[in-house]
Design a protein around this nucleic acid. Sequence first.
DNA 1: CGGTGAACTTAGCAAAGAGACG
DNA 2: CGTCTCTTTGCTAAGTTCACCG
Length: 732
Amino acid sequence: MSGDHSHNEDQIDCGSRVNDSHKHKDKYKEKEHKHKDHKKDKEREKSKYGNSDHKDSSDKKHRDKEKEKMKHKDGSTDKYKEKHKEKRKEEKMKSFDEKIKKEKENGFASPPYMKSEPEDDFYHSPKHERSLKRERDVDDNDAEFKPKKIKTENDKKAKKRKQDEDIKSKKTKHKKEVTDGKKKAKKEPEEKWKWWEEERYTDGVKWKFLEHKGPVFAPAYEPLPSHVKFYYDGKHMKLSPEAEEVATFFAKMLDHEYTTKDIFRKNFFKDWRKEMTSEERAKLTDLKKCDFGEMSNYFKAQSEARKAMSKEEKQKIKEENERILQQYGFCLMDNHKERIANFRIEPPGLFRGRGDHPKMGMLKRRIRPQDIIINCSKDSKVPEPPPGTKWKEVRHDNKVTWLVSWTENIQGSIKYIMLNPSSRIKGEKDWQKYETARRLKKCVDRIRAQYREDWKSKEMRIRQRAVALYFIDKLALRAGNEKEEGETADTVGCCSLRVEHIKLYPENEGQEYVVEFDFLGKDSIRYYNRVPVEKRTSILNKHLQELMDGLTAKVFRTYNASITLQQQLKELTTAEENIPAKILSYNRANRAVAILCNHQRAPPKTFEKSMQNLQSKIDAKRDQLADAKRELKSAKADAKVRKDEKSKKAVESKKKAVQRIEEQLMKLEVQATDREENKQIALGTSKLNYLDPRISVAWCKKWGIPVEKIYNKTQREKFAWAIDMAEDDYEF
DNA sequence: CGGTGAACTTAGCAAAGAGACG
DNA sequence: CGTCTCTTTGCTAAGTTCACCG
């Protein structure tokens, strides 16, 4: 590594971002560690490399072991029963569940596997699997997706697990079959399936069997009661149902500021008129003369009424939703019941783009069965369209993951119904993403050296490419594809930056060669940063592909995010701290990443107030502590005089009280710091999409932090694979 | 071999839900 | 036990990537 890499320190403190979350820090005393300087990163980096290399050599062995056991057991150990016993409406899924069984009997039990590397055949290839295998596409990208890497971290554990499970699974499987019959009525929930212990498809096939119930459509429009009137130019006017529906969309948004925006109003009115009868169209020519007031009030009253509903009524609605979820919220994919992410079709309404969107206010039309394409397997029960309707198409494409699709009318893009992040199909992909990022880790030095070299190239294209890559790496910018002008808000990423987004200062505030960025990125979120630096995109990705198999621009974001988390965790966590303080450290590490990736949020509306509340809680706690201390003192004095058991006991209990209060106070203060620092930072996006969950899991294990403190239920479901496989020594 | 569209990931915000508070 | 507050979930827009087409 040459001197040019102070790289990773830069990742974090690379500029004076406008919304630096730490700027308010001193407002609330900073008793805790601050972010330290990151000078040690370099060394750390190095030693890590050593580490991982070392590790790799042993990986292979484990991998091979791992393969031998690819039995796709359905995870039939009892230990998971607990988690599962929560509400389950078995009856509804009966048909699915039955199918699961049937297919197992058919010997169709699990995704056949085709190994990606020839030499693997040498190690393992049970005949029965083989027979189901497909030819693998030679050019398939997944081929590069090394099972070897993947199996890496779970090795130790897997080995352990393997041993007891091999024994156990024989037992349990047996038991299961026996008990199955009588349990029929009250079936045991399917055990959590550890798909990450199975082989995956490698030939572009996404599934072998797929059955689902189709989408849930938006409820039909219910015309307004006749007392809710619409006025045009002060006069009551009864609208046709079609026109009325669109009018209600506008009425519902009346308080929102974008109903005041010109483009929004113009687009809305234009589309609204299309839905009107010709008489209506002739009459309604000026949006300003439209009075939606009664409609608006009516909807407000409705939502009030909904809030005021009795418990029973609310319960009923909840149950109905649960019923729909059970019926439509799951599918059967390759013998496993999987949760669907978005089984409800998007309801009609007015399009609200983000930022300065040219199409805001346009009518997003209602999706009907004849707009819907169903995707499922040939041998499945095709979902029924609603009575009297037909699907647009039913297809059986197992090279894609979606179950339902339709074309949306605003941008003309396709929307999909897909599976939940906890599903095998999403989880595998997510895992793969982090493995690619880890491979980048191994060659990032080389790549960084090369693009620096390329800055000197005589070819302009090469120089441009190298600069783009440098920014993508150093600043974690997005790739920045071209967009159609006038179709979307004017936002940019690295390769679409224009001159007006950048200012160059040979010298600025004492630093040399400063680049100032100021542009709107994804979701029209502002990116502002000033960076001191050393003295276009398909092309870019092609180039990256040559540098490393599977490397694209976004891998840098994943890589830099994850490596930053790992470094920051190492740096910020201290053994002595208690759990709340450790979690603050975790959040700070997470925050460093969020800042790097520019994940911002609007400060919560009630932020100041909630901060004050918290502060007064702290003050109260301080008073309480002072009182407790006083009491302790007098108890001590008392004990000195009396010297009896009773007063000694009193001292002890007062001591405990003081301690307890001190702890509570500390916790509150930590909370205040955390919240303040987090004012405009959104941690969720990086946590969910950029941070290799195994880093977090390992950190939890290392410091004895319950993983629930870091991941909520949904997140634990999504990252089940990581929670299961990562040990405390996992290295990204 | 560039352009385009399909497929899939990433993103912030708002509504709903859960939990704390009085 | 209603209300207020914070967290979680749902929603869907807005990105990236890659295969395919002419």
